[in-house]
Design a protein around this nucleic acid. Structure first.
Lengths: 173, 173
DNA sequence: CTTGTAATGTTACGATATAACATATAGATC
DNA sequence: GATCTATATGTTATATCGTAACATTACAAG
């Protein structure tokens, strides 16, 4: 069931490909529950709803965008409500912050400890999580050559997803 | 002449190493002048001063930090003054934006077209520009496997520089 | 059912960034 | 040199993103 609001609906391991997104989202939620249960952490209503909102599509949402959704549903209406839920999800590997966009997206590989690399389509805003291990190890090499100890890495690419490359008006720089 | 305010004064190709920073900075300015002259672009007083401020150390400065320096010297005191100069420098490869810190730093490899990778010390805020080609090509591979066309990449690592690794109190997470 | 801890909510503010428009300046042309 | 034009600078005003500090509520352990 590829859904309409997501022109480049991405599968967990084959982003920008059409897939059954209802499954994709509910799997993500289930996976999150398992992971938090294991760690003895709580998926409270705000946190759960925040994750669901992120899981609605393979896009990045700003904290204030998430906040307005939460507020409309009766949760708190002040920024810390959204930031706390988002920070919690990020801290436990259920969501990622996209620095380039000052926004957040659900993690597509929950539980697999990894440095994530993101492919961000500047035309349709779709986000895909790409294998980052090769980039990351190249970065580790560059760092250790300088004696620098990496604690966390941000790897993000901006460009055009497959479907937007074929849409000339969107592709215009 | 390693200078005092820069605990991890970095050489262009060997960051985090002590070096003659007065040369490092004046070379950067000279190089910038060449490059802009070639392109028929102007290194106006604000732009020049902004670059000099960034070149003072291998650190990242926020736009408002640069702005207050400029304002104190008689330039305009409003945000666009700083953002315009910084954006201009970035656009022409003379400075980089560090997304992770919402701030800016002088480019250490002006004129060499490259995707930059940054090593950011969370203890002393020193910034080193590392060879990014290997990371970048690994990222290109991951992207093309998904049919994604990268236009620009952000590669940044947060961690500890050599000198801060040996200072336990600074290294505390 | 109390008590300590974690989570939620609020107010208030700080930091980052840009839109829109007015003024000034450098270089080209006459 | 005067004038024109494009570029650059400066301003006001506002949008957007993020956090500190503290009050209140829910939860789970004893």
């Amino acid at each position: 069931m590829p859904h309409d609001h997501c022109p480049s609906c991405a599968a967990p391991d084959l982003a920008f490909a059409t897939h059954d997104h209802a499954d994709c989202a509910s799997d993500g939620l289930a996976r999150a529950q398992e992971i938090l249960a294991t760690k003895g952490l709580r998926l409270t209503p705000v946190r759960r709803r925040t994750l669901e909102i992120l899981l609605e599509g393979h896009r990045a949402l700003g904290a204030y965008e998430v906040l307005s959704r939460l507020a409309a549903e009766g949760f708190g209406a002040q920024p810390p409500v959204a930031y706390r839920a988002l920070d919690f999800l990020e801290e436990h590997g259920l969501a990622h912050r996209i620095r380039r966009l000052n926004s957040f997206t659900a993690c597509m590989h929950m539980g697999e400890s990894h440095t994530a690399a993101f492919l961000i389509c500047r035309a349709c805003n779709a986000i895909s999580e790409a294998p980052a291990a090769p980039s990351r190890s190249a970065l580790d090499n560059a760092a250790s050559a300088q004696g620098f100890a990496i604690e966390s890495a941000t790897i993000e690419a901006l460009g055009l997803c497959p479907s937007c490359q074929t849409t000339p008006d969107k592709a215009a720089a």
